[in-house]
């Protein structure tokens, strides 16, 4: 299992578009992906769950990944967030 704390650097945080992009990218991996924010935790492959976290711009989330391709998944999601979801 690997973890990483990272801030959402885009303008809005997790909104419909960004959450959907995150979930879509996460769904490409076998590993189980969770996103922690404050006391809440959400399924990283679920757009709806990510939206309900209410993450705003510049706030930090914790990405928790467990599975055979966890390294690749973490790398891909980090790139996505760092690129401010400009895919």
């Amino acid at each position: 299992m690997i973890e990483k704390i990272i801030a959402l650097q885009d303008q809005v945080g997790f909104h419909a578009r960004t959450a959907a992009l995150f979930a879509k990218r996460a769904a490409q991996f076998k590993a189980e992906i969770q996103v922690g924010f404050k006391e809440k935790k959400a399924n990283g492959k679920s757009t709806l769950a990510l939206m309900t976290l209410g993450v705003k711009s510049m706030e930090e989330i914790k990405i928790i990944i467990q599975g055979p391709d966890e390294q690749a998944a973490m790398e891909a999601l980090t790139i996505l967030i760092e690129s401010q979801f400009k895919v």
Binding site: A20, N43, T47
Partner: peptide
């Protein structure tokens, strides 16, 4: 985003 919601695993 609509399609993502429809396909949402959770």
């Amino acid at each position: 985003a609509h399609i993502e919601i429809l396909n949402d695993p959770e």
